[in-house]
Nucleic acid binder design. Sequence first.
DNA 1: CGCAAAACTTGATCTAGATCAAGGCACCGA
DNA 2: TCGGTGCCTTGATCTAGATCAAGTTTTGCG
Lengths: 237, 237
Amino acid sequence: MDLTSPSLEPVSAAQDELQRLCLCAGSGDLSCAICDSFDHLDVKIRRMARGDLIAHEQAYRSALLMVRYGLLATTKQLSGRRRQLVSLRQPGEVFCSINAFDQSFRTLALAPSDVIILKLETLSDATVTDYLFQLAHAELLNLSSRTVLLGRMTAAERVLSFLNELVEHQGETSGDSVQVDLAMTREDIADYLGLKAETVSRVLGRVRNTGLIVFDGPTHFSVPDPAALRGFDAMAV
Amino acid sequence: MDLTSPSLEPVSAAQDELQRLCLCAGSGDLSCAICDSFDHLDVKIRRMARGDLIAHEQAYRSALLMVRYGLLATTKQLSGRRRQLVSLRQPGEVFCSINAFDQSFRTLALAPSDVIILKLETLSDATVTDYLFQLAHAELLNLSSRTVLLGRMTAAERVLSFLNELVEHQGETSGDSVQVDLAMTREDIADYLGLKAETVSRVLGRVRNTGLIVFDGPTHFSVPDPAALRGFDAMAV
DNA sequence: CGCAAAACTTGATCTAGATCAAGGCACCGA
DNA sequence: TCGGTGCCTTGATCTAGATCAAGTTTTGCG
């Protein structure tokens, strides 16, 4: 299948796929009550290349989106080539286009990605609105932490917080080593953390020197001791 | 009435007061459908001094809060006397304690304030849940803009954005001069904008020199031409 | 009114992180 | 396999805003 051009295609197996994803560990987000009502829903899968946008016309008010693999982000572009990534959408995460803020924000793929799109015809259904409220509430928690990070944390604290966010999303298995594939460039990370790519590179280098993370190519690393990383003091790097 | 010590007192007229506030211009936030069901609700008014907290035990999951006058903020305290104001709650604004993020955030009064508290026993009621969803969504919009401001804007841009936020909340009347009472210290403003008090003071001084705002004491100023302030380029200050 | 504490302003200096610059590495297509 | 185009790293320098340091104004209270 061609990865370089975006396509919006109905996929017969998508429904099963989504149901499967609902049950797998990484996606506890999607309530089973929702899954149970799939028969009534319009499900599509969209394959995206890096840079492809989720257009506002396509992502209807009444659509739930799930990242099957890859990485999306909701971003804001400012004057003078300044950019801020407001929310990262990692594999297994479900989000709703109405929580993607407003027309001045864009949701795009940072890496080749597959997104499952459920058009919800029946927004008035109590199960669905409850779920949307849960999603909005989770997003509020994310954004409030993000606000603190961007307003008051040092570069080292931001990068360590980001690394821990990645590790937590991987779902460490009982203190074992965790593999993380960060499918974004240093500049993407910088735009997420309110820094510059050079600063991200320098801080990552210093964290690497502590041995808390072990790089295996620039976009993949492992964390031998996730608890140690979590407890690590940013002042020491 | 004593302003220096907080008290939580049932006020017979609070219900009427809130209804009145619902209808007045500055508080279009609170839907009239909610107001119509006041008979079933438990309404109290709380007078707060600067620094008083809205305790998590008091602000039940099922409570709506409205600032009658004064100024509240939801804040996060970090190590080393660092603080971030995440959300400002201005007069007329309604918010819900479940949108005040989590236990690690505190909502407190930045100035002597009156807060009207509605305990909602019937969270399952569709009108109420719809309204809570609207509040959560409005908060998401606020926080996403805040993220961009903190991540990528210069000090001048942050302060101008803040001034415009204040003016907008006052609700300018057809391009006329707007009076703004900022019931917060320079340090509060700094903690809201991710800056230091000295920087806020310097930038406000420079904005004052342009004539776009006219100070009448450190906590009160007027904006002769709100449109000019809105259109003003931060590079010029 | 008068004093003390808090808040504000303004200047001088410092620094974390940005910017500028130059190689090095890795992935991709021919 | 080879070349090229993005990335990534690392060093040198610069700067916006922080920090340090006085004064000054405002506020609140006896």
